[in-house]
Simulated scan of single mutants.
Amino acid sequence: MTDNPQPPDDLAMGTSLDDALNAEMTETAGLSQAQIVRKRFLRHKGAMFSLFVLVLIVLLATTSVGWGPIPGWWKYSYDDLVPRTGDDGGPTMSLRPTWLGGSGFGLGEHPLGVDNELGKDMFALNMRGVQTSLTIIVVLGLLSTSIGVVVGALSGYYGKWVDSVLMRFTDVVIVLPLLVITAVAGYALGLSGKWSVAVALGIFTWTGLARLVRAEFLALREREFVDAARVANASNLRIIFKHILPNTVGTIVVSTTLLMGAGLLTEAALGFLGFGVRSPEVSLGTLVNQYQGAYETRPWLFIWPGAFIVAIVLCLQFIGDGLRDAFDPRQKRIPNRKDLDRSGPDPVDEAMATTAAANVARQPGDGA
Rank of each mutant, 00 (worst) to 15 (best):
V172E: 03
R278I: 08
Y291G: 02
L209N: 03
P69R: 05
I239T: 11
M260H: 05
G202K: 07
S279K: 05
L340F: 02
W74Y: 15
A198N: 07
A357N: 10
Q292C: 00
N359W: 09
M122D: 03
A368D: 14
S50E: 07
G102E: 04
L178Q: 14
R221F: 07
W195F: 14
G320P: 10
P97K: 00
E224K: 06
K332I: 15
E350S: 13
V254D: 04
L142S: 05
G108E: 10
N247T: 04
V184T: 14
F169K: 00
G271K: 04
D341F: 08
K120W: 11
L51D: 01
G202F: 11
D10Q: 13
L11E: 15
G108P: 12
Y295M: 15
I312C: 03
D115C: 05
L59F: 15
G285V: 07
T92C: 06
F318Y: 11
E281S: 12
A215F: 02
A269F: 08
P305M: 02
I309D: 10
V151Y: 11
S164F: 14
A198C: 11
P177V: 09
P345C: 08
G367N: 09
V253D: 02
P280G: 09
T26D: 13
R43E: 03
T248K: 00
G152H: 04
V58Y: 04
T355V: 13
A47W: 00
A200C: 14
V197P: 04
A351G: 05
T85S: 12
A210W: 04
I239P: 08
L201T: 09
V348N: 08
A311Q: 02
V184W: 11
R238A: 13
D321F: 06
L31F: 09
W99C: 01
L56I: 11
S155K: 08
V253I: 14
E350A: 15
